[in-house]
Amino acid sequence: MLEKTGIATREQIEKLLPSPGRRAEGPYAVMECFQKIPCNPCSTSCAFHAILPMDDINDIPSVTPDKCTGCGACAAVCPGLAIFIIDESKGGGTGTVTLPYEFRPLPGIGETVKAVNRAGEVVGDAVVTRVLPGKKTKTPLVTIEVPLSLVHEVRFIRCEAHQEEDPSVADTLREIPAPPQTADIGEQDDEVVICRCEGVTLREIRDLIREGYTTVDEIKRISRAGMGPCQARTCGPLIAAEIARMTGEPLGSVAPSAHRAPVKPLPIEFFLGGDTE
């Protein structure tokens, strides 16, 4: 799920939560960091040593809920923006979620915003109760009040001003006209440009390979693909891949074109000036 969609599952989230007793006591950090990646600022930023030091920088952060004060220092430095501060202790059927929000405009305190879940869906309204502008980190932390039932769902907000610019993508996808029948790419290869500089199409490259030209250099000399101003930086790997595909040779045994100075075209005039030695 997470690795296909970017959305963590309920089971993954539930494993992160402290005991019901601790949750009733006050704010706590939830680290939605499920993958071993080389990163440790959360553990080095915690003044209360609530996040275990990492023996291996790839370790998944481990929070000691009894030491965590829910201060949010880790949420402000997390490069993955994966830490949220949850407070279920307020009573009155609501709780707060503090989330990193690096967008403009920043909402104001008291403003009603759309509460959005991990899948980007609006699940209700929320009132902004605190905004830490994050002058130094440039990662503002926005606290919103939501019904208790949503504190483990809501992970993003949408402000009115932002909403106009960014219509729900799901809606646009639904408007899509009937899909055209895809023609085989073989019929369209006149429209596939391999060498942008010299305007060489996939059809020309394929024709040459069929004729028996199976090195990048041969194809370059005949078609000029790779001889333009970019010197095969853009098309070289594509030509090699097409040769490998059509001949069945492994890509590593398709020799790249020869590399000679200069790496970019220069006017003759250039070589006449400057250092003459």
Binding site: R196, C197, G228, P229, C230, R233, T234
Partner: peptide
């Protein structure tokens, strides 16, 4: 043709 790489590699 439009630009492609914007850093002087591709010459588009």
């Amino acid at each position: 043709r439009g630009f492609y790489c914007a850093i002087g590699n591709c010459s588009s």
